[in-house]
Every structure is written in structure tokens, then in C-alpha cells.
């Protein structure tokens, strides 16, 4: 294996291999899934960025609806009723109100085993699809900085669990109206659905699967851990779907609260 010319655009096969110049011989629309992934993720990131820096329409005071993009709201710029954990960050335009948590949420998803697959394929084209040559000349995978940092996923998982608790707290608080009475509206249902989806996504995490039981070799001696592992494993098979579902519920929840807060629509009330 002395002569090992790199494949760049699939035009030259390494010495000794079948000399086929095509980058791929796939006849299906292999480019479609990475394209959709690219479009979906890019759109979401764009929306989230705009919203994170908008610094308005994140809270419906009357019904205690706080969008997850601003939870917990800890900037001095936050509306006092929306801030359950104090207000201490300076109110400057480049600092989102939930700056305490957003970086961790971002890193949790960035290091997630599913999203890694998605953006390695769709953004980095490494590879764009199975059996389609990637354009890079060198490849070292996750062995070096910064990608070595992907191994920190479990810490962001811990953080994400904490944040899910806060989101749950928000969703529960939203059942109490500003006047102190119990209320139930479409916003509550959306908030709860979002929180349920977030928990499912968070719990189905591969790191979680390892932590609850995957790392042990003697399930038979730890029946509770085995049960937990089985539960997480079942959810884990849906990790990709949950990843997309939570992107959707997050955006939808945020948009709904923005729309109500801005007065574009009014909340559909069921009780109170």
C-alpha cells in the first residue's frame, strides 16, 4: 500500500482498486436527504438566531406563557413577571436574555450523536451519502480538537436535563394566570407538548443510554438499571425523529407565544 493517492473528487481510485472514475454509481436521488437536512437545519438556525436576539414578544403576561427560547429569563431587560430566577445579566443587544442556558442547549444538540450524523453529511459532506465520495483530501474524524470535544456530549446532556426541568417548571407555572386563578388555553397544551417532546428527546440520548445501564456488563445483577436501559433503548431508536420533532415543537411553541404576545392572534382559551 505504498502508493495511496487521495480520492479528491472520485476521479482517481487508489492504486490496486477497481479503476472506476465515477464519484458514485448510485442511481437513486441520494442528494435529496442531505439537501433536506441542510435546508431544515439552516432554516431552524436562522429562525432561532433571529428570535434569540429579538428581545421582545417572548412572554404573555396574562397567562404566564414564557417561550423556551427565553427561559430562564435572567437579563435585567426581562419583564419582571417572566424572570423566575432573578435578573442579573446586562441588557445589551448582543446578549440573549436566556444566555445562561442557550449555549448549553446548542452544545447539547451540536454534540448529539444524531445531529452529528446529520451535519457531517449535510454540511460537511463527509460523506454526503453512503457510497458517494467526499470532497476532502484528509480526514481525521473525531480524533483531534475541536471535534475531539464531541466526547463531552454527556455533560451537555446533564445540563440539558436541568434545563428540561426549568422548561417543565415554566409549563406548570403557565397554568396559573397573572390574576392567580387557574387557566388552560391552547398555549398550555402547546407548552406541555413541547416539554414532553423535549424530555423524550433528552432521555433518548445515547449518552443517557450508556449512563443508565449501557456501561455495565451484568444486567442480570441490576434489574432496575436493566429496565431503565431497556426503556431508554426503546426511545433511543427514535432519537432522530425526536430530534426533528423537538425542533418543530420548539419553533412552534415560540412562534405561538410570539404571535399571542405581539397581539397577532389571541390565545384559544378553554378554562379561564
Amino acid at each position: 500500500m505504498s502508493a495511496a493517492p487521495e480520492i479528491s473528487h472520485g476521479t482517481v481510485a487508489s492504486a490496486g482498486r477497481a479503476q472506476i472514475s465515477a464519484r458514485t454509481l448510485r442511481t437513486d436521488r441520494w442528494w435529496l436527504p442531505p439537501l433536506l437536512t441542510f435546508a431544515g437545519l439552516a432554516a431552524w438556525v436562522a429562525y432561532a438566531t433571529v428570535r434569540a436576539f429579538m428581545q421582545e414578544w417572548y412572554f404573555v403576561e396574562e397567562y404566564n406563557y414564557l417561550t423556551p427560547f427565553y427561559s430562564p429569563c435572567v437579563s435585567v431587560g426581562c419583564e419582571p413577571e417572566s424572570a423566575h430566577f432573578g435578573r442579573f445579566l446586562p441588557d445589551v443587544w448582543w446578549l440573549p436574555y436566556a444566555s445562561l442556558t442557550l449555549p448549553f442547549l446548542l452544545l447539547f444538540r451540536l454534540t448529539c450523536y444524531y445531529y452529528r450524523k446529520a451535519y457531517y453529511r449535510a454540511f460537511w459532506l463527509s460523506p454526503p451519502a453512503c457510497g458517494v465520495a467526499e470532497p476532502h483530501k484528509k480526514y481525521s474524524g473525531e480524533t483531534r480538537f475541536p471535534l475531539l470535544g464531541q466526547n463531552l456530549h454527556r455533560y451537555f446532556f446533564y445540563a440539558a436535563t436541568l434545563i428540561s426541568v426549568i422548561n417543565t417548571y415554566d409549563a406548570v407555572l403557565a397554568f396559573g394566570k397573572a390574576d392567580g386563578g387557574f387557566g388552560l388555553g391552547l398555549g398550555n397544551i402547546i407548552l406541555v407538548a413541547n416539554v414532553v417532546a423535549l424530555w423524550a428527546y433528552t432521555i433518548s440520548c445515547h449518552s443517557c443510554r450508556s449512563i443508565v445501564g449501557g456501561r455495565i456488563n451484568n444486567f442480570s445483577k441490576h434489574p432496575m438499571r436493566y429496565k431503565s436501559w431497556q426503556f431508554v433503548s426503546r426511545l433511543n431508536t427514535k432519537h432522530m425523529e425526536l430530534a426533528w420533532l423537538t425542533l418543530a415543537t420548539l419553533a412552534l411553541t415560540d412562534f405561538y407565544i410570539m404571535a399571542v404576545s405581539a397581539g397577532w392572534i389571541s390565545d384559544l382559551r378553554i378554562v379561564g
Partner: peptide, 9 residues
């Protein structure tokens, strides 16, 4: 193992 970028092919 670190070379694997879990693209699942």
C-alpha cells in the same frame, strides 16, 4: 474508534 463520525453507512 475516534475516526468514526457515526454517519451510519
Amino acid at each position: 474508534l475516534g475516526m468514526c463520525n457515526i454517519t451510519k453507512c
